[in-house]
C-alpha cells in the first residue's frame, strides 16, 4: 500500500506530476512494509493444462523483479493474474494488499500494464491513445492532456503525436505502449516481454527508458527470455520452467549458485566424443553445436584443453551468464 505521506503530495485525482515521481516513490519504498505482490501456491489452469503450477512470490516496493523463462513457462499467465485480468484457479494472491477477485478494478487503477503484443488503438492518433487511456483511469480531461504531453517527451514521440499509430516502427509502438502504461502514475508497472521482436538499437533505447523508471523508484515487474535484459534491469528474478519456479535470487547470486565465474565454449570440426576427453577440467555440458566447459578460470581451462592435445576449431572464453544458469537448471537453452 502506498503510504499516506506519499499521497499527501499528490495532485488532483491522486496522480502526481511526472517530475515529482522520483522523490515520492522513494519515500514509498522506504516506508512500505507490505509486499506489492504476494502470492502463495498460485495456480492457473486452462482445462487440463496447468500453466502456473503453485508458485510463491513476494515483490517489494521499488524493486525491479523479473520472470525469466522460455515460451510456455507460465510467465504471461502469471503476469495476467498479477494484472488482475485473469483470476487464479487456486492459491492466494494479494496485489497492493488487496484481493484481485474482490478489488480487481481498484487494483487495476494503480497498475500500469504493457502487454506482450501491442494493443494500441488503431482508430486513434498517438496522442489520443494516451489521453483516451487516461480517461479510463478517471483522470480529468485537463489532467489527461497534461500527463500525455509529459509522456510524449518521455517516449520520444512528440513529432509523431498527431499521426496514426499504424505507421510507427515496432520500437516506437512499444514506447507508446509503455507510455500508455504510465499514464495513471502507477504504483506497479508490469511489462510482458517488453523488447521481444525489437532490433538491438530499439532494445537499448527501451532499456534506457526502463532504467530511468527504475531509478525514479518505480516498481517494475517484467518477463523476458533474454538473459541480458534480466541482468541489466532486474534486481531480483525467478526462473520459471513448466509453470514452476526453479530458482530465484539476484542475477549475480543465481550465476554464483548455479554456474562458475567463467565459461569456455568449444567447437570441434568433427562429431567425435570430445566430452569424455575434457573430463576433469570442469563441468562439461555437451550441446548439439558446441561444448560448454564451466571453469573457475577460463584461460587455465583452455590451456589444459590444448595440453591434452585437443584442437577445437573455435574457442570462446566468457563470463558466466543467466543462460548458463538456465541451462544448468532445465537442461536446455533459453531462446526457443
Amino acid at each position: 500500500m502506498r503510504a499516506e505521506g506519499a499521497r499527501a503530495g499528490s495532485g488532483p485525482g491522486g496522480v502526481k506530476p511526472f517530475a515529482e515521481l522520483s522523490q515520492a516513490s522513494v519515500t514509498v519504498a522506504g516506508v512500505s512494509e507490505q509486499p506489492l505482490i504476494y502470492a502463495r501456491g498460485l495456480v492457473k489452469r486452462f482445462g487440463d493444462f496447468t500453466a502456473v503450477d503453485g508458485i510463491d512470490l513476494d515483490v517489494a516496493a521499488g524493486e525491479a523483479f523479473g520472470f525469466l523463462g522460455p515460451n510456455g513457462a507460465g510467465k504471461s499467465s502469471t503476469m495476467r493474474m498479477i494484472s488482475c485480468v485473469s483470476m487464479p484457479t487456486s492459491g492466494e494472491l494479494r496485489i497492493l494488499g488487496m484481493d484481485p477477485v474482490r478489488d480487481g478494478s481498484r487494483i487495476r487503477g494503480r497498475l500500469g500494464v504493457c502487454p506482450q503484443l501491442d494493443n494500441l488503438d488503431p482508430d486513434l492518433s498517438v496522442r489520443e491513445n494516451l489521453t483516451t487511456y487516461a480517461r479510463y483511469f478517471g483522470l480529468s480531461r485537463a489532467e489527461a492532456r497534461r500527463r500525455t504531453e509529459e509522456l510524449l517527451d518521455f517516449a520520444q514521440l512528440r513529432e509523431k503525436a498527431s499521426g496514426a499509430v499504424e505507421p510507427l516502427s515496432g520500437g516506437m509502438k512499444r514506447r507508446l505502449t509503455i507510455a500508455r502504461a504510465l499514464v495513471n502514475d502507477p504504483d506497479l508497472v508490469l511489462l510482458d516481454e517488453p523488447t521481444t521482436g525489437l532490433d538491438p538499437q530499439a532494445r537499448h533505447l527501451l532499456w534506457e527508458r526502463l532504467f530511468r523508471l527504475k531509478q525514479r523508484g518505480t516498481t517494475l515487474v517484467l518477463t523476458t527470455h533474454y538473459m541480458d535484459e534480466a541482468e541489466q534491469l532486474c534486481d531480483r528474478l525467478v526462473v520459471m520452467d513448466g509453470g514452476r519456479i526453479v530458482a530465484q535470487g539476484s542475477p549475480r547470486s543465481l550465476i554464483e549458485t548455479y554456474s562458475t565465474p567463467e565459461v569456455v565454449e568449444l567447437r570441434f570440426p568433427d562429431e567425435a566424443d570430445y566430452a569424455g576427453k575434457l573430463e576433469g577440467i570442469g563441468r562439461v555440458d555437451p550441446l548439439p553445436d558446441r561444448i560448454l566447459l564451466y571453469a573457475e578460470d577460463g584461460d587455465a581451462a583452455v590451456a589444459e584443453v590444448h595440453r591434452r592435445g585437443l584442437a577445437p576449431s573455435s574457442v570462446l572464453v566468457r563470463r558466466s551468464s543467466l543462460e548458463d544458469v538456465f541451462l544448468q537448471l532445465t537442461g536446455r537453452t533459453l531462446v526457443d
Partner: peptide
C-alpha cells in the same frame, strides 16, 4: 484491434 483487451487492463469493467 484488441481495443477491449487494452481497456480491461484499466479499472473499466
Amino acid at each position: 484491434s484488441k481495443t477491449f483487451e487494452a481497456v480491461l487492463a484499466t479499472p473499466v469493467r
